[in-house]
Design a binder for these strands. Structure first.
Lengths: 120, 120
DNA sequence: GCCGTTACGCACCGCCGGGTGTGTAATGGA
DNA sequence: TCCATTACACACCCGGCGGTGCGTAACGGC
């Protein structure tokens, strides 16, 4: 693909816009190793608020990136898992982002820190 | 890399957070084919506001993803180009996102549209 | 002297995502 | 009977990004 498609194709915009919501890829990463209940998701991620997690799950469900499975038990048990679509997005592009972050992330943080210095 | 690094490593978060600003990857895509002046950037992208473009360029500069080169001429001529860091980010992960969007983007849009239907 | 071009800066508004606290239905166990 | 657990919903504030409009400094050309 060339850069023209990037500018014109709304599908590309739709995919990059997924990352507008900072917690969504984090939730996907937490689900990458297997299905989790809501409570275990919170503990695994750590530092995420209950409502924020709810919003993220709703969005990921609406985007078809995760599946929800509720069991009729007590106390209630609801499991979330990556869908096929979400699995392909995580194993491909998101892993590529993570790999790049491990290789060049420090250079990014350096640049951010330097610009923060000159601003003060 | 495994999902634990995704949750713990701040570099990964820093990279995914780049996409919080929806226009930044678009600007990078416009610069992918070569350096451009600010005015040509606006025309190439299309539908971007002057201030929004300014903000995006400032952020990309602060992140070290693009370079700025001003020429002492009249009328003023300022050229923006992808830096080495920005080039590696675009050619790798961002292209991977674009490729995924071409393959599965319609499934994403379908899911979004379906959830919008049931909501109304 | 006046206007057009270029590349900005600045002030303001609206929306929405994230953050915080509180409430609730159903159920099992002490 | 009372309480803990689970998985939510609801109401609110705050900050920041995107969007809109206007101003400006430098210079060339008419």
């Amino acid at each position: 693909m060339d850069q023209d498609e990037f500018l014109a194709d709304c599908r590309v915009r739709a995919v990059t816009d997924l990352f507008v919501h900072t917690w969504d890829p984090v939730v996907m990463a937490a689900l990458a190793s297997g299905p989790l209940r809501r409570r275990d998701l919170r503990l695994t991620i750590g530092g995420i608020r209950d409502k924020v997690l709810t919003d993220a799950l709703h969005r990921l469900l609406a985007n078809g990136l995760i599946d929800r499975r509720a069991h009729a038990e007590a106390p209630p048990r609801v499991e979330y898992a990556l869908s096929d679509l979400g699995r392909s997005l995580f194993d491909g592009p998101i892993q590529a982002l993570g790999q790049w972050a491990l290789e060049h992330g420090d250079r990014l943080l350096d640049a951010q820190e330097r610009s923060a210095m000159t601003r003060s």
